[in-house]
């Protein structure tokens, strides 16, 4: 890959990181504002939602990180099959280092054995790159930044689960989802959005929960059973009364996105990832010449 193209790609990758850290996508902003409207005037829930809305505006204007925890860096990329995989891997890592230097990302990645933070955000598992070649000559690059507070409250269930009385059916899945919300309380910085996978193994299930976060808030699940389950889970979770930041109120969840993977006869996992209100997700079509052509959210 020529040096000039590498430079252009690098700049585009850095811009995608900047925008993701500072600007929530429109569909998420709409959902946050809808949640704000639901909360009673002069309530604690409304107070939290007012601050959240103000923060969303301010971060965009200042082009500064929306939340100081700039999170796990999750790239989902399709790239032109003629472009060099090894070079691209290096370029994404270089973009993360540059974005960290510019302050778009906090120095946020720690060696788990030594506790050392080398300040670059690059190391084993960081950033997480899912690079897939395709036949188009342009790139589809999507990025999610997911903070630690909400990542800590995700959960994986193995059905049947006698603690919550969940069997191997969609009612059991619903119980897992609602139990996860109850366990999380306000610790996941709600109102949140859940990515849920029914089936898979422990690893593929959790990975696919993150891919659910690539869906737009308003999209409809093509599987009618899952579409129904998504809707019901949001409605029922919002009857729990946990509310924004766990202050109490009507908006506990803004959305639930559910997918399914095949499973072994012996296993029935339900994997749930919790995304905080600071749902940082952006994406762009980047031309084969390295230029951002279109924003995807």
């Amino acid at each position: 890959m020529k040096a000039a193209l590498q430079k252009k790609l690098l700049d585009s990758f850095i811009e995608i990181i900047r925008k993701t850290s500072a600007e929530l996508p429109k569909d998420v902003i709409d959902a946050v504002q809808a949640g704000r409207k639901q909360e009673a005037d002069a309530s604690r829930g409304k107070y939290a939602m007012d601050i959240i809305c103000k923060n969303i505006d301010l971060a965009k204007v200042k082009s500064a990180p929306l939340c100081q925890d700039t999170g796990s860096i999750l790239f989902f990329v399709h790239y032109p099959h003629k472009h060099d995989y090894d070079v691209l891997q290096k370029l994404f890592k270089k973009a993360v280092m540059a974005a960290t230097k510019k302050g778009y990302l906090r120095q946020n990645s720690v060696d788990s054995l030594t506790g050392v933070n080398n300040g670059t955000n690059v190391g084993p598992g960081s950033p997480t790159l899912h690079l897939e070649p395709w036949k188009k000559d342009s790139y589809d690059i999507r990025l999610i930044l997911k903070g630690g507070g909400c990542e800590n409250v995700g959960a994986q269930y193995s059905l049947p689960d006698s603690r919550i009385g969940a069997g191997r059916d969609l009612t059991g899945v619903k119980k897992c989802i609602l139990d996860c919300v109850q366990q999380a309380q306000g610790k996941g910085c709600g109102p949140g959005v859940l990515g849920v996978i029914v089936g898979g193994d422990r690893a593929t299930g959790y990975l696919a929960t993150k891919e659910q976060f690539l869906r737009k808030m308003e999209d409809k699940n093509p599987n009618p059973d899952l579409a129904k389950l998504e809707k019901e889970c949001v409605e029922e979770a919002n009857k729990l009364g946990i509310g924004p930041m766990g202050f109490g109120g009507k908006t506990t969840l803004m959305g639930v996105k559910i997918g399914a993977l095949n499973r072994l006869p012996a296993s029935f996992f339900v994997s749930v990832s919790y995304m905080c209100w600071a749902y940082r997700r952006q994406g762009a079509v980047v031309s084969g010449a390295g230029e951002i052509k279109k924003w995807l959210y």
């Binding site: 939290a48 923060n55 301010l58």
Partner: peptide, 13 residues
Amino acid sequence: MHAVGGAAQVLAE
């Protein structure tokens, strides 16, 4: 006292 998690910019102001 509970501050709003994630509201890094409002709180910095």
